Simulated scan of single mutants.
Amino acid sequence: MSLLASYALFALIATLANIGTQELVMRLYLGSSALWLSLLAGTAVGLVLKYLLDKRYIFHFQSRNTVHDGQIFILYAIMGLLTTAIFWGFELLFHVLFDSREMRYLGGCLGLAIGYLSKYHLDKRFVFNKDVA
């Protein structure tokens, strides 16, 4: 499988995990913070899953030890702040514009797709670059 196809597949898997986690949180918690809790939980699940897939299968990166792996993950998460803002921005915009859970998730999927395109280049240059890491 090509790098592009692999990356697209892993982005899809992480997106489904993210949106699925959000939906689970929304069904389990009906309080006033449900939207924010679902966004945080979905983001966390998607972040960890995508990190593991990208590190191993996209960038073929081997950390030196557990501490190094933790440092790389923190750098990966920092690079994800901008892309998370894009994702959350789209999801919340669709939430406000359409007042529908389905449309909110569509906005989230669009935001994640745009974010993942950007994130690949950030990760390649700043996270999994052998000279940097």
Rank of each mutant, 00 (worst) to 15 (best):
H60C: 12
K50I: 14
R56C: 04
E102K: 05
H60T: 02
S63A: 12
V67T: 02
K50C: 15
L49I: 14
R64C: 04
G20E: 11
R64Y: 04
V48D: 15
G20L: 13
N18K: 03
H68C: 07
S63M: 02
G115W: 08
S2H: 02
R101Q: 12
F61P: 12
I58H: 03
G31K: 11
L82A: 14
H95E: 09
G20M: 14
A41E: 00
L110T: 01
R27L: 04
L81S: 07
L3F: 13
E102I: 15
F87P: 00
W88H: 13
S38Y: 03
G108R: 01
H60I: 03
I114W: 11
T83D: 03
A41Q: 00
A5Y: 12
A14T: 06
L93T: 13
A17H: 11
H121T: 09
L4G: 00
S6I: 13
N18V: 08
L49F: 14
A44V: 12
Y120P: 15
T83L: 03
M26Y: 11
M1I: 08
V45I: 12
V48Y: 15
Y116R: 11
N18W: 09
Y51N: 14
Y7H: 08
A113V: 08
L97Y: 09
Y57C: 03
A34Q: 11
W36E: 12
R64E: 05
L81Y: 05
R27V: 00
Q62H: 13
F10E: 08
Y76V: 05
G108S: 10
L47P: 01
I19F: 10
M103I: 08
G46N: 08
L52I: 13
R101P: 10
Q62E: 11
Y51R: 00
M79C: 12
L52Q: 09
G70L: 07
G42H: 06
F98S: 05
L106C: 04
L4V: 03
D54H: 06
A5V: 13
F90M: 00
S38E: 03
L37Y: 04
F61I: 08
A5I: 13
A11W: 08
V45A: 14
L16T: 10
S33N: 09
T83K: 00
M79D: 09
A17P: 03
I114E: 08
V67W: 01
G42W: 09
C109H: 01
G107P: 13
I72P: 00
H95F: 10
S33I: 05
T84P: 01
I58M: 02
L122P: 03
W36K: 14
L28A: 14
